[in-house]
């Protein structure tokens, strides 16, 4: 049961298609786990549809329709099928479909790099550098680095759980931290916590990692 959701402004911006790729990735991943937010996102799509329906018109160039007809006459419809059930492939996957597609496999395909204290991370290459995305692996019971933010950071739990001043976050929950939030998440006991973290500004760490190390870690 998901108890920490996305905000309306993020869902609307996802629907509008105005976010950096890293945010699209985190939001699509959350929507795969949360039908409440997915229904909201699809209703914001309906706002986009209404804007298209009622908006101005720009005439297509001469011959656009006949070109189009020529094109579709050479195109066969794609076969009607059903999407495979995610669980059909075997063990339940840690990474929801959009994240697995982005990485090219489930969690065993992630190229982790140790960053100290047993914490590992994998930076995901996004198409634009307006925001960055990374996967974090935090051993059970371990504190994540104490950090403040310069921008907006979304942390989406994929496995295990973590807790901080804002509460406990388990699979599917998303924590939204703004620039002035200082927080210190601790992974819950039990199993290692795996999160997807996206931010539109570099994180600044206090204490846990020297500031100088940040450019090398690319975080």
């Amino acid at each position: 049961m998901i108890s920490h959701h996305l905000t309306d402004e993020l869902l609307m911006a996802y629907s509008a298609g105005t976010l950096p790729e890293a945010f699209d990735l985190a939001i699509a991943t959350h929507l795969s786990l949360c039908d409440t937010c997915r229904a909201s996102a699809e209703s914001y799509d309906a706002v986009g549809g209404a804007l298209v329906e009622d908006g101005t018109q720009a005439e297509m160039s001469d011959g656009a329709l006949s070109e189009m007809l020529e094109r579709i006459r050479s195109e066969a419809p794609e076969p009607v099928g059903t999407t495979p059930r995610p669980e059909a492939a075997g063990a339940p996957s840690v990474l929801p479909a959009p994240l697995a597609a982005f990485i090219g496999g489930d969690v065993d395909a992630v190229k982790w790099r140790p960053v100290g204290m047993g914490v590992k991370q994998a930076i995901l290459q996004t198409a634009d550098d307006a925001a960055s995305a990374r996967l974090l692996f935090i051993p059970a019971g371990t504190a994540m680095p104490d950090h403040g933010h310069r921008g907006t950071e979304l942390t989406l739990v994929l496995q295990g759980a973590f807790s901080d001043e804002a509460g406990t976050f388990a699979r599917g929950d998303v924590e939204i931290a703004e620039s002035d939030d200082d927080h210190m998440p601790v992974a819950d006991a039990g199993e290692p916590c795996i999160c997807l973290a996206v931010t539109d500004a570099p994180l600044r760490f206090k204490g846990w990692l020297p500031r100088l190390a940040q450019p090398f870690l690319n975080i």
Partner: peptide, 21 residues
């Protein structure tokens, strides 16, 4: 539009749910 701008094939989209007859 986003795929063309990003030179990608797939904007991250939620997991597909079953569809069809």
């Amino acid at each position: 539009r986003i795929d063309i701008a990003r030179r990608r094939n797939a904007r991250p989209e939620p997991e597909a749910l079953p569809w069809g007859p």
